[in-house]
């Protein structure tokens, strides 16, 4: 069977270690700070997480850019030229236009004589961060089991809503500014001491589902939601990510151990694009289980 590469993008938040372990490549997005463009690589080579959140707290204009045509062409070609097919699992189409650009690049590449026998599969993850990241890991595991690119793509497409996100945040300000959250007006104001809880919904939007008084209540609640959602916990990995809050991560880890007791708990930090979009103090849990019903 022909080999195939699995690619994510800068929103998938897979560390070097995980990308290496699961042989996953990714396409770069960008961050623009006060007009200066920088590469949003997941290893924070050009700037650190502290830099980023510092800029945001200082009120600098921080924006993100989607994967460029050139970047897609380079990354796809690099694999195609090695004789591999390409499976790209994209950031949610509700959050980024990258998936459309990828489709465009795919069409133009496959028109070329040299790639006429190549295959490029593109799946919209309807998620981001470790929702997308854990989907990529799952795809890699299936590849290892010997599944074909068609089978893996079909599985991801059919199961993507089972990758659940439960996130809480200090302020919706950044997500609102970025236009990347759906919430009824009642939820919109920043309310002293009140934390919104949001999921990545059935169409891939960040959707505020409820609010909790105080950070601790909010963190307890996302663990509770994760517990209600996860299936076959003893064989699952639960992913905990925070922007820059190691104490919160530690608290959540302990809580998840007590409440869910999964096979593994993986703790990490948000990558540059997600961090830039959600802002400091974000905490999020990802679990695989029941399909997300919100927004259906």
């Amino acid at each position: 069977m022909k080999k195939f590469a699995i690619l994510g993008d800068s929103t998938c938040d897979l560390t070097t270690e995980l990308r290496k372990k699961f042989d996953i490549d990714y396409c770069l997005m960008g961050v623009v700070v006060d007009g200066k463009e920088m590469v949003a690589d997941l290893d924070w080579k050009e700037f650190t997480a502290e830099d980023l959140y510092g800029w945001m707290l200082a009120g600098k204009k921080v924006k993100t850019t989607q994967v460029s045509v050139e970047e897609f062409e380079n990354k796809f070609k690099a694999h195609l030229d090695k004789g591999e097919d390409v499976l790209y699992i994209s950031c949610s189409s509700a959050l980024s236009g990258s998936v459309n650009t990828a489709e465009m690049v795919k069409a133009s590449l496959l028109e070329k004589e040299e790639y006429k026998d190549a295959k490029i599969y593109i799946v919209d993850s309807l998620n981001a961060c470790m929702g997308q990241g854990s989907m990529l890991i799952k795809a890699s595991e299936l590849r290892k089991e010997g599944k074909s690119i068609e089978e893996v793509a079909a599985w991801v497409e059919a199961n993507r809503l089972k990758f659940n996100q439960f996130c809480t945040i200090d302020t919706l300000k950044y997500l609102k500014n970025a236009g990347r959250v759906k919430a009824s007006t009642a939820f919109f104001g920043d309310i002293i001491g009140v934390k919104p809880i949001f999921v990545s919904d059935a169409i891939g939007s960040n959707n505020v589902i409820e609010k909790q008084k105080g950070k601790k209540n909010a963190m307890n609640r996302i663990v509770e939601l994760a517990k209600e959602t996860i299936e076959d916990a003893k064989n699952q990995t639960v992913y905990i990510l925070t922007a820059n809050a190691p104490e919160d991560a530690e608290y959540l880890k302990q809580k998840v151990t007590e409440e869910i007791a999964p096979k593994d708990i993986y703790v990490s930090t948000l990558g540059p694009i997600i961090g830039c979009t959600t802002g400091p103090k974000t905490v999020v849990i990802y679990v695989f289980g029941k399909e997300c019903e919100v927004g259906k």
Binding site: S184, A186, F187, I191, I192, G193, V194, I209, E210, K213
Partner: peptide, 10 residues
């Protein structure tokens, strides 16, 4: 105040 802060019609 609190009831309004926690307003949720969902």
């Amino acid at each position: 105040y609190t009831a309004l802060a926690m307003l949720d019609y969902s």
